[in-house]
């Protein structure tokens, strides 16, 4: 049998060029960071098993999984609402993989590994909200979208899971976006165009914001 050596590559490997782009002579107003190498599992309750899934999730994570559009932080994972009776488990370092979560949750839920099926992009900076407001139709005002709020929505006709993480130490809001890998480059270029007038600082990271 042929031996395969799978090398995981970011869907933004071509499109992402680190450095400062767009407007010159001003401090970049938008910080775009792709976060690489994460574990992402979609969990969906089976028909009639929503209550059982909720208690199994609470036993596994120590907190209730979100049943409204919110992202909940546990000690080592984010639980991100993605629809009725479904959520994502986002983590790093193989703490919550298909293997371990299947044992904990598969009595009441179906699981699907999305680790290499999505790109994760963090948007921050003084003009992050202004840039996203050009593209998103949801209300991004801090009162409408406080820390921990999640939304399943569309940006530039592309489905995304958006949630607001904890503010950065400098007080700037952080918007996280999960997008299908095959749409990531298209969304990336759309955001670059929208951010160009503010100046945009592009990075990639192995760490969550």
């Amino acid at each position: 049998m042929a031996e395969f050596s799978w090398v995981s590559r970011s869907p933004l490997e071509q499109g992402l060029v680190t450095g400062v782009h767009g407007a010159r002579g001003i401090k970049a107003g938008v910080l775009l960071t792709e976060i690489r190498n994460f574990d992402l599992i979609q969990v969906m309750a089976r028909r009639g098993k929503g209550v059982q899934m909720a208690s199994a999730a609470e036993a596994r994570f120590g907190v209730a999984a979100p049943d409204v559009p919110k992202a909940i932080q546990t000690a080592d994972a984010s639980l991100i609402w993605s629809g009725p009776d479904q959520y994502f488990v986002l983590s790093k370092g193989s703490k919550h993989t298909m293997d371990t979560l299947t044992r904990a949750l598969s009595q009441s839920a179906s699981l699907s590994d999305q680790s290499h099926a999505r790109a994760l992009i963090g948007v921050s900076g003084t003009k992050a909200r202004a840039m996203l407001a050009k593209l998103s139709s949801i209300d991004l005002h801090p009162q409408a979208l406080p820390i921990g709020t999640a939304a399943a929505t569309s940006i530039d006709h592309t489905s995304v899971n958006l949630w607001r993480g904890n503010d950065r130490p400098d007080g700037q809001a952080v918007f996280n976006l999960l997008v299908f890998a095959t749409f990531a480059e298209s969304l990336w270029h759309t955001m670059l165009d929208a951010a160009a007038e503010y100046g945009v600082d592009i990075r990639h990271s192995e760490e969550f914001a």
């Binding site: 309750a45 089976r46 028909r47 009639g48 929503g50 009725p84 009776d85």
Partner: peptide, 11 residues
């Protein structure tokens, strides 16, 4: 309103 069968709690 949710259509019949939406989500897992509403059988």
């Amino acid at each position: 309103e949710p259509a019949a069968g939406v989500g897992a709690r509403k059988v």
